[in-house]
């Protein structure tokens, strides 16, 4: 049996604010297999983002272990983590985090700048991913010229451009209306069916209902972890009243 994609062991993260110590995560142990679609829920301040940042190799844990695939990554240096993020992980943020005054194509191609991909290939791969998220005709548009849903699609295309095994999305629908949220979830479901492991933070049950597994945080500990019969976002979308296309 192959190793799980993600295995954390008593993961702890503390923040030091002057004399105070804030324990954002207090010993989280979890295993996520390759190909899962996991929704992370919990009240505000319960440690969801902290957990995602550790999964995304953006931060070091205070203690505990984190195995990503075969690799124990919690002790790697900053530059080694950068390579891991570049090769294995795609990020989707609540506020899209696109570079302003930069075309959709260049935004999507950004991760390829940092692994020596040649210009022509950068462009062709970015164009392919933009087409995949349905924005083939928006490649030259700047973020300011795109709707929120379109911007989030560009961000997803960027997360995919390096063929990651893991896509991490921290409240990807937090800034979107409900229909657009379903569209984004449908896109993530499509990616998941193609084999990419997806972890999504959300505080909306509707959004979480599209995941195959829901975990619940409270006060920095894992409170609940259960299997969910995922709704199909594509079918859901068909039921929603049609709006004029964005």
């Amino acid at each position: 049996m192959p190793a799980p994609l993600i295995r954390t062991d008593a993961l702890v993260k503390q923040y030091h604010l002057g004399a105070n110590v804030v324990a954002a995560l207090r010993g989280v142990s979890i295993t996520i297999e390759a190909g899962e679609f996991v929704a992370v829920m919990g009240p505000s301040g319960s440690g969801k983002s902290t957990f995602m940042n550790l999964l995304g190799c953006l931060d070091h844990p205070s203690s505990g272990e984190y195995h990503l695939g075969e690799q124990e990554v919690s002790r790697l240096s900053g530059d080694q983590l950068a390579v891991v993020r570049n090769q294995k992980i795609g990020f989707v943020f609540q506020h899209f985090n696109l570079l302003p005054r930069t075309s959709a194509l260049d935004n999507v191609a950004l991760p390829l700048l940092y692994n020596g991909t040649l210009t022509a290939e950068r462009h062709s791969r970015a164009a392919k991913r933009l087409a995949q998220v349905g924005l083939a005709d928006r490649m030259d548009h700047h973020p300011a010229q795109l709707s929120g849903g379109q911007q989030q699609r560009v961000a997803i295309a960027r997360a995919l451009v390096n063929d990651p095994m893991l896509v991490l999305a921290d409240e990807p629908t937090g800034a979107l209306d409900s229909r657009t949220s379903v569209e984004i979830m449908a896109l993530l479901q499509t990616l998941n069916r193609a084999g990419i492991t997806i972890v999504v933070v959300t505080h909306e049950h509707d959004v979480a209902s599209f995941a195959g597994r829901i975990i619940l945080f409270r006060d920095g500990v894992l409170l609940d972890d259960r299997v969910n019969t995922a709704k199909d976002a594509g079918a859901e979308l068909a039921r929603l009243p049609a709006v004029s296309p964005a």
């Binding site: 950068a82 390579v83 090769q87 990020f91 570079l99 950004l110 940092y114």
Partner: peptide, 16 residues
């Protein structure tokens, strides 16, 4: 700063 953070998130090393 946020742009720098984003670049690092998608794989920029400090020397980049």
């Amino acid at each position: 700063t946020r742009e720098i953070g984003l670049r690092m998130a998608v794989g920029a090393r400090s020397k980049d």
